[in-house]
Every structure is written in C-alpha cells, then in structure tokens.
C-alpha cells in the first residue's frame, strides 16, 4: 500500500505480435506532474488508453485512489475523476469554443435538466474562467472548426479541465503549438493545475518542456518503463540520451 493516486501493476496488452504494454508498473503521487517520454510506438498512448478505459489491458491492475479501474468503461472512469486530452484534438466542430467547454462543465451536473440552457449565466462565467486560464477567452465565441491547430489543442485541454478531474492525462499537449509559445502556455497550464491541485500525467516529445515543467519523468521503450526519476537525473542518463533522445533527434 502506498499513498499513490494512480497505481499500475504489470499492465500488458499486445496487438497481434506487437507488445504495446509489456509489464508496465507505475505510481503517480497526488499533486505531482509526471512526464512520459519515449520513442514513437513505445506504448505511451496505449498506457493512457488503458487508464481511461478506451482499451482493456490483457493483464495487470490499475488502481485509482485505491480502487481497481482496469476494464471499466470510459464513462465510469471519467466519473471517478480521471480526464484526458488528446494528441489529435477531439472537439465538437460545429459548436462554439465556449459551448465545447460548457458541455463538459454540464457533464458533471445538470446535464439532463431539459429546460435549463447550456449557457446559463453561471456556467458561462465558469467556462470563461477556464478559457481565461489558458488565454483562450478571446476565442470563446469562435466555432471550433475555425481554430488553428495550436488553439484546438488548448481547447481540447480546457474541455478536460472543465470536468474538474483529480487526475488529468494529456497526450502531447504542446505538439502543434508554435515553438515560441510552448513555454508560456505550459507555464499557465501548470500554474492552473497546481492552483486546482490536479495531478497530471503528460506524454511529451519536447525535452525542454519536460525538463522545465515535469516533477518526474518516466521513460517508455518497447512497452516497458526503462527509467524514471527527476528530470535532471533521467535526462542526463547516457542510456536514455542514446535510446530515447537520440532516436528522436536533438532536443529542439
């Protein structure tokens, strides 16, 4: 028994002959911000998919706040307090940005009240506050399908945040965001997470982002965790530098 918020033990999942997860053990402590790095195909997204219920692990256990969640459907897992954002943003394209966020606010309560508008004054201001946290307030009235890739990415994260999760999983939150804006956005995002004391796990390819914003790093390779620890130690490890960062090219 530990004080971990999320605890995965011996997770295994193979697609045909490919072992996307081959005995994954990982603990995430309450309040920490953990980065997952590793080459493409190492099984990083598969891990997020298993934790959020999109994929069912073939072996192993996932405990969230002490409760077994492996194999539960996504809807149940969300209600327990785990939200996620996506590598490719999943927006309601024909709704406005504020409606995208408000639908997620409503998902927590009042969703089935048939005659209370989605954009009630209270929900509108709450949605705007979340958008403001990510500097998205000016886009609130824009239709989601008119946004550029970077903005779509952030709206996707804002939607997950609107669920007020205890644990937020993010798949490459800064890919698609202009290089010059990455750190500013991560600063705001991490500040928002800390303010709301949300525990976070994010998959990331940009080592500078990892070094600056993560409390801890886990290195994935071939369906397993090869190394984990504080960013400065892990990123300096020669093996990690060769196998992970080397494969990916120099940090940009």
């Amino acid at each position: 028994m530990s004080g971990a918020l999320l605890e995965a033990r011996g997770l295994a999942l193979a697609f045909g002959g490919v072992r996307a997860a081959d005995g994954v053990d990982l603990e995430v402590a309450p309040g920490e911000i953990l980065a997952i790095i590793g080459p493409n195909g190492a099984g990083k997204t598969t891990f997020l998919n298993m934790v959020t219920g999109y994929l069912r692990p073939q072996a192993g256990s996932i405990r969230f706040a002490g409760r077994e969640i492996a194999g539960l459907p996504p809807r149940r897992i969300v209600r327990l307090g785990i939200a996620r954002s996506f590598q490719i943003p999943q927006l309601f394209a024909e709704h406005r940005v504020i409606e995208n966020v408000a639908l997620h606010l409503a998902a927590r309560d009042g969703f089935w009240a048939p005659f209370r508008p989605l954009l009630s004054p209270a929900r509108r201001s709450e949605a705007l506050a979340i958008l403001d946290d990510l500097e998205l307030a000016p886009l609130a009235e824009a239709r989601a399908d008119t946004l550029d890739e970077g903005a779509r990415k952030l709206v996707d994260i804002a939607m997950a945040l609107a669920l007020r999760p205890r644990l937020l999983l993010m798949d490459e939150p800064t890919s698609g965001v202009a290089a010059s804006e990455k750190h500013a956005i991560m600063d705001r995002l991490v500040a928002a997470l800390r303010r709301a004391s949300v525990t976070a796990v994010f998959v990331e390819h940009d080592m500078e982002v990892v070094a600056r914003h993560a409390d801890r790093v886990a290195v994935w390779s071939q369906g397993r965790i090869r190394a984990e620890g504080p960013p400065e130690a892990v990123l300096a490890d020669p093996l990690v530098r060769r196998e992970v960062i080397g494969v990916e090219g120099a940090p940009c």
Partner: peptide, 17 residues
C-alpha cells in the same frame, strides 16, 4: 446541444462521462 456533438465527435461525449 449534445445532439450536435453526436454528429461531430461522439466519442468525446463518452470521455466527458
């Protein structure tokens, strides 16, 4: 409003619970 969301991105509704 979620009816329109079924049209555009139904899986995201499930991930909203």
């Amino acid at each position: 409003e979620a009816l329109g969301a079924i049209k555009t991105r139904e899986t995201r509704l499930e991930f909203a619970g």
